[in-house]
Nucleic acid binder design. Sequence first.
DNA 1: AATCTCTTTTGAATTGTTCTAAAGTGTTGA
DNA 2: TCAACACTTTAGAACAATTCAAAAGAGATT
Lengths: 144, 144
Amino acid sequence: MSVTRKKPVKASAESTSAKVRAAGLRPTRQRIALAGLLFRDEDRHVTAEALHEEAAKAGVRVSLATIYNTLHQFTQAGLLNEVVVDSGRAYFDTNIGDHQHFYVEENGALIDIPGETIGISNVPTPPKGMAVDRVDVVVRIKRA
Amino acid sequence: MSVTRKKPVKASAESTSAKVRAAGLRPTRQRIALAGLLFRDEDRHVTAEALHEEAAKAGVRVSLATIYNTLHQFTQAGLLNEVVVDSGRAYFDTNIGDHQHFYVEENGALIDIPGETIGISNVPTPPKGMAVDRVDVVVRIKRA
DNA sequence: AATCTCTTTTGAATTGTTCTAAAGTGTTGA
DNA sequence: TCAACACTTTAGAACAATTCAAAAGAGATT
Ligand SMILES: [Mn+2]
Ligand SMILES: [Mn+2]
Ligand SMILES: [Zn+2]
Ligand SMILES: [Zn+2]
């Protein structure tokens, strides 16, 4: 049988608030609204600017500074992961499980590659006194 | 016997100029000086700002705009590779062979991992109409 | 409700990079 | 050898992404 990861099908405002609180953060209007946008459906990848626009469209007034604060707090709380694929802007990922990405250089889109898919072997031992924090694999793709 | 990659042991001003010319670029004072710094010894990883400071220390007057122009031109000419490990600044690598990196988050240092070391298998097929451009692996390390 | 602490906001500040347009330099071929 | 042209460099402005500061606002606790 295949190991299927449970997706949060539909998070209520209640559980959203609880999720924020469980992360050790006060469930403020802004944090609840952003968590609602981020975690209501499928896993997703957002930039600060994109989330800001999305919030605006959803009628939620949140400053850009708060978007940045929130993304970083959620990341620190383990609710989000940061994905580094571009030396110009930061992406945040609601999929916090072990997985990799396709990165479409042309339009900046990220596509998840399930964690069991790619095999990575023989990662060398880090220099003395250092330990592996994380191994990131980015498959850059472009129009064939 | 082991396959040892040839390192450019010591590039003369002559050959540096030739290298720039061979890349289809006019061997200007700035480009020759920067190529000299970049390719004289071992493979290295630089940021624009770091190369700018290094040039200044070496007594070469080059504007930051020229550093950026040159790094991009060298990259486009295949003399350098860009390495994406930080969403805040761009790194350029004089090692253009297939290889991966350790990235020391603490101080921004990059350490090469030879191309034959890490094994990557089962890279999935990209979406229709797309092709793999490159697979990047970054091993993020921190103090143990 | 009073109070305390944590948050949000606005706008300025910073950082990294790109752009502009004017001045300078490499190349070519009389 | 040098004029003429194309390509380069430069300073500084402009931009984009992100962070910071200080003051106003809002959750939590009593
Ligand atoms: Mn670039
Ligand atoms: Mn930036
Ligand atoms: Zn992802
Ligand atoms: Zn390298």
